[in-house]
Design a protein around this nucleic acid. Structure first.
Lengths: 195, 195
DNA sequence: TAAAAAAAATAACAATGGATAAAAAAATAT
DNA sequence: ATATTTTTTTATCCATTGTTATTTTTTTTA
């Protein structure tokens, strides 16, 4: 028996669903356990699900043509994980999504969500409001990327998400910030010598 | 008399609005003419509107503490312009939004849109679907920023948005790509000598 | 708990991109 | 059309960040 309450609580922060609507939503959820390092999305395959992280942590990353990984997003409990472009356009993914820990996700199939959003106004509102927030944050990250040094971005990140920074390997954080792991290591060692 | 049809046509690509719903939407639109270089959003003031560009071009930019401009977005006809974070959270803006040409915008007040989205399911769907697209593109830009060189980002941009690249000053495109205008100039001169 | 694997640190050198200043070219206003 | 302002180019030097290789530390697995 799975506990859907964290997801329902999340939704409740934005909109109100009737009991029947909650039941319909639950009926389309597919619970999956994912082992650490396992991929739930891979380039080439269409990303059919939007996944809510009930337990654990994930990252979405892009593998470039010289084999380097670039982390697009890092998510923990109560976040969603998807290759968003692949998901909303239902075209082959360009990214991987990988469990950073043993995790449990609630998967929602694209077609099911689209149908439910068409039928349940509040659910449409929920995704509208949360995606607007996500978009606003993404724009802030763009500003950070184009206007700040790697050092500034690093300190900005550990201040904003200290628990995540301590939970994921440093080389993954480096690839999220857009710097080499060696350079992030250098940044950190400079800090220690200063303080 | 203003022509609302481009906006309605845009909406129609995603959802269907009844005549009455269209009328309600029109009733909240405020038409504004904006002269080139004029600011429609400024740091400190809450961004009360989501603006549809009926004619002209805009950019949203961040002015950092050493006085340098960083362009967050560039939009032309049939796009929206907003300091998104300020708009959706109704908190003071951190960015400017500036007309790059003499323009005409259709402004929608935050409260009006929120109310209409609560009352008109299709409109909620419209903003959900379009914001999902915007978010997906923003993530792609993040990948580009963290994984590519300035040169690659430049050629990627002019290939993707050739008409915009030719329509805005080069120093603004540079600030969008996250490079100095001098370096963008250098990139361009290298291309010419190669070809 | 020991061995193996993964992650982080260090260091020398290289490349990308920024700062500054000046000149040239283009756009705008008078 | 000319003067003025804005934008772009050019060039030199400097700072930030990447690369490669090696070592140390930490984590995982047997």
């Amino acid at each position: 028996m799975t506990d859907f309450s964290p997801l329902l609580k999340n939704i409740n922060r934005f909109v109100t669903l009737t009991n029947e609507e909650q039941a319909r939503l639950k009926s389309i959820l597919k619970v999956s356990k994912v082992k650490k390092k396992q991929m739930i999305i891979q380039p080439g395959a269409v990303c059919r699900y939007r996944s809510y992280i009930a337990k654990g942590a994930f990252r979405v990353f892009y593998l470039d043509d010289v084999g380097k990984e670039h982390t697009v997003s890092i998510g923990i409990e109560d976040w969603f994980v998807t290759d968003f472009y692949s998901y909303i356009n239902q075209v082959p993914a360009t990214n991987y999504a990988q469990a950073l820990e043993d995790s449990v996700i609630l998967q929602m199939k694209y077609e099911d969500i689209e149908l439910l959003c068409k039928e349940i106004h509040s659910l449409s509102e929920y995704f509208r409001l949360t995606t607007e927030k996500a978009f606003a944050y993404s724009r802030r990250r763009v500003i950070s990327n184009i206007s700040k040094t790697a050092e500034q971005r690093y300190y900005e990140y550990i201040e904003k998400y200290p628990s995540i920074a301590n939970r994921v390997p440093q080389y993954i954080l480096a690839s999220y910030l857009g710097v080499s792991p060696e350079f992030l290591s250098k940044i950190r060692s400079q800090k220690i010598s200063k303080s």
